Simulated assay, not measured.
Amino acid sequence: MCMVQDGTKVLLMNRPDKRGFPGYIAPGGKVDFPESIVNGAIREVREETGLIVKDIIYKGLDEFCEPDQGLRYMVFNYLATSFEGELLSNPPEGELLWVEIEDALKLPMQDWFKRRFPLFFEPGTFELSFVWDERNNETIGQTIKHYGADKVKIHN
């Protein structure tokens, strides 16, 4: 996932229900083998928005595990603070919208994205790890860490 920032605004897309994960979200997607994780993020932004991101910064990892299925889903998160190109007139993943950062959390979005959103703009990097029990539809474990310039904050 790559948050694209232009001054006080970020570019979000409003994904329709039919695409999965409905609501506002940053561009992102799967990495094509054998491309690097960062190159996958850059490519996904270009495919979904038409923009070529520059000055891309690694912000953190968000992972979800489901032990009964042996599933681990990892999202590498980036922030791009410069770009070139023009927005697509018919974006494939949903309507594109420049939103003031301070207003973004007022928009409808998935809870997991709402939790992650402010972390893109904090100093340092983050690590979010959640263990999910599909049968009981609940989180059974979590690790949340923020790695700043001078220390690590651990939240339980």
Rank of each mutant, 00 (worst) to 15 (best):
M1H: 12
C2R: 02
M3N: 06
M3K: 00
V4E: 04
Q5F: 15
D6P: 00
T8M: 07
K9E: 13
V10L: 08
L12A: 01
L12Y: 07
L12H: 06
M13R: 04
M13H: 12
R15C: 03
R15I: 01
R15D: 08
R15S: 05
D17F: 08
K18S: 15
R19N: 11
G20K: 06
G20L: 03
P22G: 10
P22V: 04
P22H: 05
G23V: 06
I25M: 10
A26G: 05
A26Y: 07
V31Y: 00
V31L: 02
F33I: 02
S36E: 05
S36Y: 08
I37H: 12
V38D: 07
N39V: 00
N39H: 13
G40Q: 01
R43D: 04
R43K: 13
E44I: 00
R46Q: 13
E48M: 03
T49I: 00
G50N: 04
G50H: 03
I52S: 14
V53P: 01
K54F: 01
I56N: 04
I57Q: 10
I57R: 04
Y58M: 02
K59H: 09
G60K: 01
G60F: 03
L61I: 15
L61C: 09
E63Y: 09
F64A: 07
C65L: 14
P67Y: 10
P67L: 09
D68C: 11
G70H: 06
L71S: 13
L71N: 10
R72N: 07
R72I: 14
R72S: 07
M74A: 14
M74E: 14
V75S: 10
F76A: 15
F76H: 15
N77T: 08
N77C: 14
Y78M: 14
L79K: 06
A80D: 03
T81P: 03
S82P: 04
F83G: 08
F83K: 06
E84R: 12
E84M: 13
E84V: 11
E84H: 09
E86A: 14
L87D: 06
L87C: 11
L88K: 08
N90Y: 14
P92G: 07
G94P: 09
E95A: 13
L97Y: 11
L97N: 12
V99S: 07
I101Q: 02
E102C: 12
E102H: 13
A104G: 11
K106C: 11
K106L: 14
L107K: 10
L107C: 12
M109H: 06
K114I: 05
R115K: 13
F117D: 05
P118Y: 09
F120H: 09
F121I: 09
F121V: 12
E122T: 10
E122H: 09
P123F: 09
G124C: 03
G124L: 04
F126S: 01
E127L: 08
V131R: 06
D133F: 14
E134M: 09
N136I: 00
N136M: 02
E138S: 04
T139M: 05
T139V: 11
I140S: 02
Q142D: 05
T143Q: 06
T143I: 05
Y147M: 02
G148F: 11
G148Y: 10
A149P: 08
A149T: 12
K151S: 11
V152I: 12
V152P: 00
K153I: 01
K153Y: 13
I154M: 00
H155I: 10
N156E: 05
N156H: 10
